[in-house]
Design a protein around this nucleic acid. Structure first.
Length: 104
DNA sequence: CCTGGGGCAGCCG
DNA sequence: ACGGCTGCCCCAG
């Protein structure tokens, strides 16, 4: 695993329960603002070994985004944390949005 | 709302 | 090491 992926995973692990963040935000915090896609790619493969709450990572604007095991699972996991997705969107996304500390 | 093009790291040949 | 394809995306039209 490379530093980028490692950073991405580490960042995702910091997202508190019941909160969500975006791929773009993670990419930014990881040091590559334009690498949201790459960040998602990293999440797709890495979360096998360790438990990474990928379900707390959504797309920009509060869209559900994707999930390797299926968006339905992702939605369920979120709902489990009192985060509800209505029509492919996170309800109250802006309030639940978690921003990383840049100095991390 | 849908379509097209761009940008970035990982993986494979 | 090199080049090309891919993806849980993003932004503009």
């Amino acid at each position: 695993m490379n530093s980028f992926s490692a950073r991405v995973l580490d960042l995702v692990k910091r997202v508190p329960r019941g909160r969500v963040t975006t791929y773009a935000e993670i990419a930014r915090a990881a040091g590559s603002p334009r690498a949201a896609r790459a960040a998602g790619n990293a999440l797709n493969k890495n979360p096998r070994p360790v438990r990474v709450p990928c379900h707390r990572v959504v797309s920009s604007g509060g869209k559900i985004g994707g999930y390797s095991r299926g968006v339905a699972i992702k939605t369920s996991l979120l709902r489990r944390e009192d985060v509800f997705a209505k029509g492919g969107r996170i309800a109250g996304f802006e309030k639940l949005f978690f921003r990383f500390n840049k100095t991390a």
